[in-house]
Amino acid sequence: MTSFSTTATLDEPAVSRGKQGGPPPIFGGGDDGRSGPGLPDYPTRLRRARLGLLVALTPVLMLFVSFTSAYVVRQGLPTLDPRTNQLVRDWIPVKLPALLLVNTLVLLVSSIGMELARRQSKLAAVAATARPAGGVSVCAKGKTPWLAMTVALGL
């Protein structure tokens, strides 16, 4: 958990700060000799990656839907008690420790924080390139320390 949130948040600024705010470096599918003019540009790749991610979420959803339904069905199933010859419920509810709730909350908040930090740093990067050009100061207002908060939560 710790390493996850820190690497993710550290990666982003590195990318956006990269040479004149240009596209992030290519990794993955780009190196099979199709680099150069044939390579799709950054917006295309971004759009494609977003679409791909959306599509990829579908089987994940199906996975959880089927786990959950199996769980619910199993919960309702009666079983035969051989001593009394009667159908009984043998489902033993697991007592969830309160810590689980806290953990979930921390996870949730830190992932929201991570996304906000990402947006903030992106805005800052845009502001950094825009300022010298237009002479207008694009003030990144409301400097809530999202990045710091996420790192703190990650620990």
Binding site: V55, T58, P59, L61, M62, L63, S66, F67, A70
Partner: peptide, 14 residues
């Protein structure tokens, strides 16, 4: 495939 294989996967895991 996208909708079906996830279900088989979870059935297999169970």
């Amino acid at each position: 495939g996208l909708l079906a294989f996830g279900v088989l996967l979870s059935a297999g895991i169970l």
